[in-house]
């Protein structure tokens, strides 16, 4: 047994116990981001750093083992700053939007991308439910903020969001009140990642998510607006700028907790955004990865489906190799990775 002190409290632990586990015994919570129970610690995010007073060293609690006589401090100003900066550094290499610019700009905060996806799936009644709580005159007073920031305008023209909203209001489908959908509209996370201007070579990545055959759809019937078919066509032009995991993202939660700012550390030459589709398994967005390596741990014994890091230093990226034939075991591995990935780097396509 090893005896040590954490925040002035004595604790006795077995050999090979991490500081994080020892703290847990005492009921002391140390913030963690890349650490996940049931997986070996990667110690990559450095959010769990603690201070060892005897040696003056700062160590990650998730992997540092307890040593006899250690005197650990888990909270002080310096640690707080280190943790916050760790999150901010992660954010400075994190390229993607949490919520789409259109939703962010909308005074009523309508989840426009989700609405568009529902329209394109012909789930008009569900889509309509988005508008049930929103006053009719919101759009008329706002002067199309959503379309002004729509990323599609970098390619041709913005998605006709206002016309799609009008279409839903005019449609005679009844609105349902599906809680799941409504809940996803109301997120209490304040932090929002935004990567700035879309680059030329990122356009093709975004178009993987959208219909690119035609530009903005004009309704044949100018007085009544879009027909159902036209609305579906127009909604398909939406590029899914919002993150697939925007409410379940540990990085976002941590950013919120530390009131982190994304542009504290501005790095020259950010990486290009890529969206790599491994249909029907998952979509990979390496620029959202925090390099925890959990996906690699999950798949390390599989020859048919496995993740790896490629390159090193700032260039390091996750990459997926899988055999072409899709089997159940591949699907279940993919699901496991989607479930455990702490960010939107690995997510389900739908």
């Amino acid at each position: 047994m090893i005896e040590l002190t954490i925040n002035n409290k004595q604790v006795r632990v077995e050999e090979n116990t991490t500081i994080l586990n020892a703290a847990e015994i005492l009921g002391i919570k140390i913030p963690t981001l890349c650490f996940m129970k049931c997986f070996s610690a990667s110690s990559s995010c450095m959010v769990c750093v603690v201070f060892e007073k005897n040696s003056g060293k700062i160590v990650p609690a998730c992997s540092a083992l307890c040593i006899e006589g250690m005197n650990i401090e888990t909270e002080n100003d310096e640690l707080h700053l280190l943790r916050k900066n760790a999150v901010q550094l992660l954010l400075s290499e994190h390229n993607g939007d949490c919520i789409a610019p259109c939703q962010n700009a909308c005074p009523a905060h309508i989840n426009i991308p989700l609405m568009n996806r529902l329209i394109s799936d012909e789930q008009f009644s569900t889509a309509k439910s988005f508008l049930s709580e929103i006053k009719n005159d919101v759009c008329s007073t706002c002067n199309l903020q959503c379309e002004k920031v729509c990323r599609r305008k970098n390619i041709d023209e913005p998605v006709a969001i206002k016309k799609l909203i009008e279409f839903l209001r005019n449609t005679n489908e009844k609105s349902t009140s599906e809680n799941a959908v409504l809940n996803s509209v109301k997120s209490n996370l304040k932090f929002n990642s935004s990567y700035g201007r879309m680059r030329e070579n990122e356009k093709s990545e975004y178009l993987k998510e959208a219909e690119n055959k035609y530009a903005r759809m004009f309704p044949a019937d100018t007085t009544n607006g879009y027909s159902k078919e036209e609305a579906v066509q127009e909604a398909l032009r939406c590029m899914h700028c919002d993150c697939r995991k925007n409410d379940a993202c540990d990085l976002r939660i941590m950013a919120d907790q530390f009131q982190a700012k994304q542009r504290t550390f501005v790095i020259e030459n950010r990486q290009n955004i890529t969206k790599i589709f491994h249909a029907p398994l998952l979509v990979l967005e390496p620029q959202k990865c925090i390099k925890c390596g959990v996906c690699i741990q999950i798949t390390n014994s599989s020859k048919d489906f496995s993740f790896s890091f490629r390159e090193k230093s700032f260039q390091v990226q996750i990459e997926l190799f899988h055999k072409e034939e899709i089997s159940d075991s591949l699907i279940s591995l993919a699901k496991k990775c989607i479930e455990h990935c702490p960010t939107g780097a690995i997510s389900a396509i739908k």
Partner: peptide, 24 residues
């Protein structure tokens, strides 16, 4: 050192990159 960082921990991977941006 930035190029030779293994890319594991965020301070070395991104922190040194930021320092390099400032030096540039």
């Amino acid at each position: 050192t930035q190029a030779q960082s293994c890319g594991k921990c965020v301070y070395c991977r991104v922190g040194t990159k930021y320092m390099l941006s400032l030096l540039n």
